[in-house]
Write a protein that binds this DNA or RNA. Sequence first.
DNA 1: ATAATATTTAGATATTTGTCTAAATAACTA
DNA 2: TAGTTATTTAGACAAATATCTAAATATTAT
Lengths: 84, 84
Amino acid sequence: MNSLFKALNDETRRQIVELLKEKDMNAGEIAEQFNISKPSISHHLDILKRADLITSEKKGQFVEYSLNTSILEDLINWIITLTK
Amino acid sequence: MNSLFKALNDETRRQIVELLKEKDMNAGEIAEQFNISKPSISHHLDILKRADLITSEKKGQFVEYSLNTSILEDLINWIITLTK
DNA sequence: ATAATATTTAGATATTTGTCTAAATAACTA
DNA sequence: TAGTTATTTAGACAAATATCTAAATATTAT
């Protein structure tokens, strides 16, 4: 739960997650959406990946990233237990 | 949304929230539950309060804290939109 | 009024974090 | 094979954060 909250505690990373909700994207395409260097985006992707929020698959010279929504169920459950 | 994620991105603060789920508590009672100084707990309470996750009410020389679950709906909604 | 208790504020410090540039690795192309 | 493109790794640095102690504020009790 710690890595999940940590991953989501950054506006850039939340935006990446929202982008990947729409469609899978490779690292370069993701980086294009931000005024942040590619190494920084790569670092954000690493944090999201460690939190299991995204997965990556090498496709030739590209690395395609996808959103993993299943981990979000844990988060929703944690929150819901607070509300009742 | 930023302050909400920030507030929840700390194990101690998440535990405070879980404590307040069970019952309202004053600052001293909350602090007793942790091996952390009272000023530090006071600081955590301030962050939770700024995020609107808790409310406080002065009762004599004590300050009683309560969980505010309504703000969690925003969070749940944000997460759910990602899953569909 | 004075002392005791509860809480917060102020200021300091070590750690974590987000960012950058430069270099390394990997894969395609001519 | 050499050059180009895509991505990550390494190392540095400034800003943010969690923690502490000491002091300030507020309330109750003697």
